[in-house]
Design a protein around this nucleic acid. Structure first.
Lengths: 236, 236
DNA sequence: GAAGGGCCGTACGAAAACGTACTAAATATT
DNA sequence: AATATTTAGTACGTTTTCGTACGGCCCTTC
């Protein structure tokens, strides 16, 4: 028996499931590594698996004429492959591994069958999608109302939560894509945050030093989505 | 019998339903006017009804320290109250009437019951939520990669589709909130579009004159979400 | 038909971010 | 150890958008 047990799983959605729902999925779950740059879901391609992230970060991005833009971000709190929850097996977006880690993947058919059979599973995963929508809304807010420094703080906080450690393996180049700014803009913003003691940065790695001040800097672009996630996973 | 018949309904989701699913909802549907400024869903309040929009525009907005920001937009192609589809009855967002019209509203309980009973209804409404997510993604793209003029073109196109007529009753003040820019910025952008013959503007009203050029101006921020909607409503 | 309020046009200095190009440092490669 | 490659830092003129303020127009209301 190599199937995961609830107690050995980090993914918060799987842990939130009742034992019957977990059992429904467990047989078909398979642990796979997430390697930097892996494309878990390609644009307009059939989605073969849903991924319950155990460790690492996966981003949902749109591929546009002006390059990739980030729509949303998923860590061990979430699921990649939300279109399957929404009764379709394609999406124009892509899901790509941004920080390496691991996931429990589930064949699309198995997820579909489980969703058909279990109202409670539909509840948990539907509410997760709701929390994702709120997350995207917060990102819209950040892009509109914050300077580059603020947006950087916002993004670091989200990643910090979803990675569960203080050292974030991120290059400026990468961040510039995520934040939608020039690469030198990231350099400047990083220095500002570092100068104020909110983070320390070295080549390819940012370390969180003062979460509270980061939250202050992100203002009300941070927290709403996270509160919504907690509410949705515990309330009902 | 004052319940709506499929043939008298404009809402595209209702029209896409099979006759059994439509019948399931019809008894509880009630036609209500949508008055400018009506708040259909308040932030963190219990959602009492879902609204299948028949005419007019409803926006999903987030209320932030920096004012309201638009997350998404719904016309006769959609449904207001998507959190109900996602198994929750609250959301931090609000839904507010931006262009007056009418809707068929459905008590939350009735929607929940119908969703529990009907996998096909879950399919249609779930896929609609998916199309909304894509729509929000396009808005993120527009906010990041277009100038104010381009974003205005993007917004006019979306509204044009969802209103189904060429005359859009919009003030600069209102647009400045939707686009997240200064009010004089809207004035300038409007003049540019008008100068190129894409629209004509008079006090409180913008008239679409050249959709093709508007689409050109919006680039690939327009079209993806609309194609996705059509695919999702017809494909499966 | 005068008054007032909402809507629109215009102007201008300031700030943020851009595009681009080039240098420097750290890590990989051989 | 020498060299290539990736990542990070810096510089500078340009563009976009901002904040703010004020004047004019249309339309309602009295």
């Amino acid at each position: 028996m190599s199937q995961p047990q609830p107690s050995t799983v980090r993914n918060r959605l799987l842990r939130a499931l009742g034992s019957d729902d977990f059992a429904r999925l467990a047989l078909a779950l398979e642990r796979v590594p997430l390697t930097l740059g892996d494309i878990l879901i390609g644009p307009h391609r059939r989605i073969a698996y849903a991924y319950f992230v155990e460790e690492g970060i996966v981003s949902v991005v749109a591929d546009t004429a002006e390059g990739r833009i980030e729509i949303g971000i998923t860590g061990f709190e979430g699921l990649v492959g939300t279109p399957l929850v929404l009764s379709t097996d394609r999406t124009p977006h892509m899901a790509i591994v941004q920080v390496e880690g691991a996931a429990l993947r589930l064949p699309a058919d198995a997820l579909r069958a489980a969703l058909t059979d279990s109202p409670t599973l539909r509840g948990v995963l539907g509410r997760y999608v709701q929390s994702l929508i709120v997350q995207v809304g917060q990102t819209v807010h950040a892009g509109r109302d914050l300077t580059v420094e603020g947006r950087l703080a916002h993004w670091i906080l989200m990643t910090h939560d979803r990675l569960g450690r203080d050292e974030l393996p991120l290059t400026h180049e990468f961040l510039s894509v995520m934040l939608g700014v020039r690469r030198p803009g990231v350099t400047a913003a990083t220095h500002t945050l570092e100068g104020n003691g909110l983070i320390t940065a070295r080549r390819g790695c940012i370390t969180v030093r003062d979460r509270e001040k980061l939250e202050e800097m992100a203002g009300d672009t941070y927290g709403v989505a996270e509160a919504e996630y907690e509410r949705l996973l515990t309330d009902e």
